[in-house]
Write a protein that binds this DNA or RNA. Structure first.
Lengths: 181, 181
DNA sequence: GGGCACATGTAAGCTGTTACATGATTAA
DNA sequence: TTAATCATGTAACAGCTTACATGTGCCC
């Protein structure tokens, strides 16, 4: 939230939208905690509220103390997320799930990756077109590139995995079954 | 846990180790919940306990009902994990963090990816050498392949990101500074 | 006038982590 | 005999999700 407000002043609602739409590919926040967190950050003097006292909407912006705090927090060590990849779990126990269902899961994953490649291309174009964020753009593009590399890897893996599953004889629907007479 | 016990009977401690060592690249479990969960699964008749009543260690194995339940659970839709990538968050706000620190983070990520490539190669060799798990091996190798593709993508991305950061002029230590006289 | 997007919040409850506590067995 | 590993648990706490509750302003 401090990061979002470091780019531009936002309302709570806009913070929520920004995190979902802009950071969504690598970060998520519990929206039920945004307003409590805004209140806390305001009480700590890290963000300031402008406009609409109790009547309408208020816009929050980073104070100098808030910017300092953001830099501190960004400098802290990265805490790796505990992995929880349900797709891989299902494939690992694929013998119990069956080759057909595994195949479906892999196809879906490949399709999702291809779709996200298109999204990343659009985001890349959008960032390149925004002159007002020229100083941030190189960093933003690095994260977009990470998404693209990851999605490309997923596409390549899905193709390879489908070939492996077909070799197992699991593709009952439509696949070539060379070993049958 | 049902999946782990579907491959071989294990003690609670071994379940914990198996999840950490074998599934660790794509799954994690809260170990504080393993024993309560084992007790619950036993009460539901999904797993059976052999040996050591109250004295020593007991080994759990899957009952037919447990195998059925495992297949049901594997067939449920994949719940995507909420993304929380601290590395990408720091790079996105890299302007506040500074190019030097960003560079360090990217180098670390690339090194981790290279190290995991070596690990995956070892795992691949190990799976290929285990004749008793021949029926599971193709599925296990698909998940190993996913890890390899992902790590290779990370390595390629890191190189690209470092080049982008150097172009920004952030590499004060040792990098070529062509624009200087 | 109705529906939708904008806007702000609260609270119950679930999940998961962390730290603690204990004891047996095995290897140096 | 001392340390490490194997083994089994408990409990407090932190964090997050979900559902609920309410109201405004704008467009069709």
């Amino acid at each position: 939230m401090l990061g979002a407000l470091s780019v531009a002043p936002l309302t709570g609602y806009q913070v929520r939208e920004t995190i979902r739409d802009v950071l969504g590919h690598f970060w998520s926040e519990s929206f039920g905690q945004i307003y409590p967190a805004l209140a806390r950050l305001e009480a700590e003097g890290l963000i300031g509220r402008e406009g609409g006292d109790r009547t309408g909407s208020s816009t929050f912006s980073l104070t100098p103390a808030g910017l300092e705090r953001l830099r501190e927090r960004l400098g802290e060590p990265v805490v790796p997320q505990a992995p929880r990849n349900g797709l891989m779990l299902r494939l690992f126990f694929g013998r119990q799930l069956g080759p057909e269902r595994c195949r479906e899961l892999v196809v879906e994953a490949g399709d999702r990756a291809r779709a996200s490649l298109a999204t990343f291309a659009a985001i890349r174009a959008e960032i390149a077109g925004e002159a007002e964020h020229a100083a941030d753009a190189p960093y933003w593009l690095i994260t977009v590139s990470a998404g693209e590399h990851s999605a490309q890897a997923m596409v390549a893996w899905a193709d390879e995995a489908l070939a492996a599953l077909d070799a197992l004889g699991g593709s009952a629907r439509g696949g070539p079954r060379r070993w049958e007479r």
